[in-house]
């Protein structure tokens, strides 16, 4: 690898991981608010919907990983297709949250239940949207052949960003759907 690229890659990696650390404090703050306000209770939510969107999002992490691995092995077709598949799954997740969860019986103005539910899903959805935009940018540049199997920091950053957003949901899902007594 080119020396300058190697230096930039080392800086970029450290920078991105530090940004994850910083973002973790944001999401920890949100989780703390959830436990502070909801305590050992949770509102009644559509369990099937929660399970489905979670499954979809976890699957999208798998397709994202497939895309990156395919690029490393110079399989451009799989690389591009898996990126689009990830976008589709991400959009499906968003639809599940926005249409079914936000369209349910709870409104944002409904006390701490409404505020925290919409705050958590909203902040996470914002990150999912940023991830989808990022993937589309990478897909467009990948289509034009700007990434090689050795030099593809853009793809790597996009992939770990997507995994990170998924990981946040892994903490958010139980905090919203599983922990505490459901209140009717």
């Amino acid at each position: 690898m080119h020396g300058e690229y190697r230096v930039a890659l080392r800086n970029n990696r450290l920078g991105l991981w530090l940004f994850f650390l910083s973002e973790s404090f944001l999401f920890m703050g949100i989780l703390v608010s959830r436990f502070y306000l909801w305590g050992n209770t949770r509102p009644e939510l559509n369990q099937l919907n929660g399970l489905l969107v979670t499954t979809v999002l976890l699957l999208s992490s798998f397709t994202m990983n497939r895309a990156e691995t395919a690029l490393v092995q110079n399989d451009r077709k799989t690389f591009l297709n898996c990126l689009l598949l990830t976008v589709a799954l991400g959009t499906l997740f968003l639809a599940g949250v926005v249409v079914f969860e936000w369209g349910g019986h709870i409104r944002p103005s409904d006390g701490a239940y409404g505020a925290v539910l919409f705050g958590m899903t909203g902040m996470h959805a914002l990150h999912v949207v940023s991830g989808i935009v990022f993937i589309l940018i990478v897909w467009n540049n990948g289509r034009r052949g700007l990434y090689s199997s050795e030099q593809h920091w853009g793809v790597e950053a996009c992939a770990i960003w997507w995994h990170y957003v998924d990981l946040v949901w892994v903490f958010f899902y139980p905090a919203l759907y599983l922990m505490g007594q459901a209140v009717h």
Partner: peptide, 22 residues
């Protein structure tokens, strides 16, 4: 958006949900 993180007063919809206050 009237999301009640910090307001200790509940509206009627929130009371119907048995929601804790902000």
């Amino acid at each position: 958006l009237h999301m009640g993180f910090f307001t200790p007063v509940l509206n009627e919809a929130a009371i119907a949900l048995n929601s804790p206050p902000g």
